[in-house]
Amino acid sequence: MTERTIFLAPQRCIGCRSCVIACRECDSHIGKAMLFIDYLNRSESMATAPALCMHCQDPVAPCAQVCPTQAILVSRDGVVQQANKERCIACRNCAYACPFGIPKIDLADRLQYKCNMCYDRVAVGKKPMCATVCPSGAIAFGTYEEIAAQNRGVPVNRFRFGNQMVQTGVYVMAPAGVEVFHIQQALKFAGGAEISAVPGIYKGEVWR
């Protein structure tokens, strides 16, 4: 992974969507926002959470592995790039394989879009757009040591989805003692909670 990476602290998210607007300004995907601000359980809480590509390291980029045309490439520094425009055939494998629900598919363009950590900016030492504008520190960009020193929490990059452990390039801030986020625990809690997340398929409608 690049020495500097993204650190998410959803607890700090105030739902302002500055990141979504800024994301559209990135030169590598002008006009298209690659991250999501999701409401969690809107009838009971006003909590929101930013969701962007976690740049999976182990297994390395499941989206790229399930791609039939090798359209998703991982750069040497571990940044998972968005689909190659001439290769992507909009088969939607990546969108539904991604354990984090991140890639978007534009059915009219027949093209996948996803967060590439503003590769053009990061490669020249700048921060990604979202981390540049986030007013509350919910999305931060820096080295592990920098961020760990600024926070009470510990950066964690391991997630367990059933039997599958996924280690990511992007970290999430957790209380001391948490080493892995277990999704199954959340399932018991959520059981049929109201969803107000943004669908990942657009232009061509979400098909039924």
Partner: peptide
């Protein structure tokens, strides 16, 4: 399978897992 959940629910459930761990 985790893939039996729609992408929106995957994001929502992961965030919920996060808030459960951090509610302290």
């Amino acid at each position: 399978w985790w893939q039996d959940y729609c992408p929106e629910c995957k994001r929502m459930l992961r965030a919920t897992a996060y808030f459960m761990e951090t509610q302290r």
